[in-house]
Amino acid sequence: MAKSLLVVDDSATMRKIITRTIRKADLSVEDEILEAGDGSEALEKLEGNSVDIVLCDINMPGMDGRTFVKEARQIPSNANTKIIMISTESADEVIDGVKADGANGYVTKPFTPETIQKELAPFME
């Protein structure tokens, strides 16, 4: 069954790159990939839609990615939603911290299509 995805990044260009990368990868995703420009908008999208996987930037104006993960994990209906962070931050403390907050995976920018595919693959079954 195709998975529903939400891409969260303040950069429309980066959202487009991530969406294009997912489309090119051999992954079973729904035709419409939802998008949000910050954490608050992402929470609204989660409330109104059934989302299997969220790919989320960390450093964003408005609600940042770390706050988004914490807030999303407070909402029981998001318990099964997988959240993968995509950020230029590569420090272990940041990666460990955001995973402790509830993120399921982490991709560092710059990324190759293979990196995205590899990170998403375990959640596509």
Partner: peptide, 9 residues
């Protein structure tokens, strides 16, 4: 953004 991220690491 990405350049500073790469530099930072």
């Amino acid at each position: 953004n990405m350049l500073l991220g790469s530099l930072k690491s």
